[in-house]
Write a protein that binds this DNA or RNA. Structure first.
Lengths: 168, 168
DNA sequence: TTAATTCTGCTAACACTGTTAGCCTTGAGG
DNA sequence: CCTCAAGGCTAACAGTGTTAGCAGAATTAA
């Protein structure tokens, strides 16, 4: 077999990202990933330790994207909150792997998580406890919405409006 | 083989509940469940349609338990909130299958979910939107706590206190 | 009582999952 | 030119949910 153009670690992780976005976390199998790279699954292990490494990379990517989205949003808490919701709804699979999957702390660049925490505190303008409560509220809303936990006829725009009032 | 004492559907689901509580959702496999009942995995399908039916039953059970816990708690929003947290922390596996797993609506007794929604609205004493925001806040806090998403040194008692103030 | 049928266990198997062992070809460096 | 590592490959293992088909026991019918 021609060895030209073998997939580098970066290439693999990029393709994992695309596969995640297309097929979701359940569709992200080592064999499906290998198929995209036109190699067989065991060959992936020549470039990557295990699947956790790929998941951890996606989590890091999710955290970074998330941070960027929030920072780019308007300055008000309201627009930050709505940006959070919008990003989550547009990237449900990335949201799932990043925020609904146990965080692989030891395999994620240190400082990433702390950076986000710090950012939230800055936005809320108050202390750690308040920031955590705000984050929990946003996360809870998104999580229940993505999971289809609210009834069909629920007016979630209104619900978010109310939630934002709570943290005003 | 003696056919006396074959596991009924109820017996299977009870054992599934115990297995879940002991080993968690990941440990709840058809083979492990069958082992407990001293039969082989394929035999389970003589009593149960598929694994989803078992999961749906556990979700129904989780919802019922949850409703009971909240109702038994003190009347104040604070004690209801703390009861929510306590129950979730004491039954993390049941919480996972009930609230962190896609709800199998079509396989759950109708009215169960609506009953809980109604209950929350009664407690908050306001409208649907407010009730949903409150629920999202509680769920978000529990979800992030169970997932180990808050840093080690976080004072979650304080965080909950703050959260309760938000919905006061 | 005997015959027929249903119930409920079993084994073997299939398609999937992540992962390891071991082999072999290709390309690069001394 | 030879060596050696890089990076493919197949075969395999243990695990998952699930189905097909068989066999014996229990229940029902004649």
């Amino acid at each position: 077999m021609a060895n030209t153009n073998g997939p580098t670690r970066e290439r693999i992780k990029e393709e994992a990202y695309l596969l995640l976005q297309e097929k979701g976390l359940a569709g992200l199998s080592m064999r499906a990933l290998a198929d995209r790279l036109h190699i067989k699954a065991p060959s992936l292990y020549k470039h990557v330790g295990d699947k956790e490494e790929i998941i951890a990379d996606l989590q890091a990517r999710g955290i970074s994207e998330f941070a960027a989205i929030i920072q780019q949003a308007g300055k008000s808490k309201k627009s930050k909150a709505l940006a959070y919701r919008k990003w989550a709804k547009e990237n449900p699979h990335l949201y799932e792997v990043t925020l609904r999957t146990p965080l692989l702390r030891s395999r994620i660049p240190s400082g990433l998580e702390e950076g986000v925490t710090h950012m939230i505190i800055e936005i809320t303008g108050k202390d750690h406890e308040h920031a955590r409560a705000v984050w929990a509220l946003m996360h809870g809303l998104v999580d229940l919405e993505i999971a289809g936990r609210f009834p069909e006829n629920a007016d979630l725009d209104k619900t978010w409006k109310r939630a934002i009032e709570l943290i005003g």
